[in-house]
């Protein structure tokens, strides 16, 4: 809870600072855009959150986003599949990717960093190979399917501002994830696996199955995210679609209170973390004296500061708890 307050505080500070520094920040158009981007990246971040919770990492997200984003228009246009067939294929493929990567980590005992690093390369390579590096687009068709990415839900009585459709996906996914993590046995056990894999094993917890589940949820959300991304922008270029998205997702999760050593994190924190990332990127574009080319440097610095602050707070809290415990 305290953690969420911390990241929410950072979020407010950045929002206030940017709105003072740039008159274009608090406009309906810009906010709509921010909400859309935050939702898209938020979905990826919630996904990687599951893996981080089990003390693993998923670097393949960018590759999965690319493959799903490329295949969606490719299957629709080049192969002539229906929207339903395409979406079903994309989601099943994502699940299969997650099961395979999770299986390699859980049963093959290979470090998640390695498995998913290879995944990142393989999936992007597949996307580029299948399409011969040709940009894939919807060619102005399939506007019903594209609504989930670029649609807007108008609010009765409000002019000039509408809720971007991906926000709805994010809300549903966030609520389901929260219910899973907080209210189900498997959610509780997934945290236990991250806290101490061996204590989990000695408690009769199906450690391997939960690990596989975490990677599956992550890949599924990455695949779904790729679908939303391509529906939003309309076309995708195999060589750079989804580049670095795994790092944005991981950064948002870490900012939102997930610990890379596992066992700790909340969905709300991750969503705010994703929002912080998007507002930052937006601020760099909007604030005239900040060169856009310095985007990565600024984001890197902010994450570093956030993580450092969190670490100091954690140590302070741990010390206090310890001295209090000695006292009783």
């Amino acid at each position: 809870m305290k953690k969420i307050l911390g990241i929410a505080g950072i979020f407010l500070v950045i929002v206030i600072a940017t709105s003072i520094l740039s008159p274009n920040f608090l406009t309906a158009y810009n906010i709509e855009n921010l909400l859309r981007r935050t939702s898209l990246f938020g979905i990826l971040s919630i996904g990687v959150g599951f893996v981080i919770l089990t003390a693993g990492i998923d670097l393949s997200i960018g590759g999965v986003v690319c493959l799903s984003g490329i295949l969606t228009p490719y299957l629709l246009n080049q192969m002539g599949w229906s929207a339903t067939e395409t979406v079903a294929f994309i989601l099943l493929m994502s699940i299969a990717i997650g099961v395979m990567q999770g299986g390699l980590v859980a049963y093959g005992r290979i470090q998640s960093f390695l498995v998913t690093l290879c995944g990142l390369l393989i999936f992007r390579g597949l996307a580029r190979g299948v399409t011969m590096d040709q940009t894939q687009g919807f060619q102005g068709k399939f506007s019903e399917l594209r609504w989930i990415g670029n649609g807007r839900v108008s609010i009765p009585g409000v002019e000039g501002f509408a809720i971007p459709a991906p926000v709805l996906s994010l809300i549903v996914i966030a609520i389901l994830s929260m219910i899973f993590l907080n209210c189900t046995v498997w959610g509780r056990w997934m945290k236990a696996v991250g806290r101490s894999p061996s204590a989990a094993r000695y408690s009769g917890i199906p450690v391997a199955r939960l690990q596989i589940l975490a990677y599956t949820l992550c890949s599924l959300l990455a695949g779904f995210g790729g679908l939303l991304f391509v529906c939003d922008v309309g076309s995708a270029q195999p060589s750079d679609f989804g580049n670095f998205y795994e790092l944005y997702a991981i950064a948002a999760a870490v900012l939102g209170g997930y610990r890379l050593s596992g066992g700790e994190g909340s969905v709300v924190g991750v969503v705010i973390g994703a929002a912080v990332m998007q507002v930052l990127r937006n601020a760099i574009v909007l604030i005239s004296w900040l060169p856009d080319t310095a985007e990565f440097a600024v984001i890197g610095l902010v994450i570093l500061i956030g993580v450092l602050a969190d670490e100091f707070l954690r140590r302070y809290a741990a010390n206090r708890a310890r001295t209090q415990a000695k006292g009783t």
Binding site: V185, R188, K191, A192, R195, S196, A199, A200, R201, S203
Partner: peptide, 24 residues
């Protein structure tokens, strides 16, 4: 410390980790 407990979790979480599945 290594195999019996999730040290950073509370007594409640540790004591109930097996039982919650039976009661679910």
């Amino acid at each position: 410390q290594r195999d019996g407990l999730m040290l950073e979790d509370s007594v409640r979480i540790n004591a109930s980790v097996v039982k919650i599945a039976r009661d679910s």
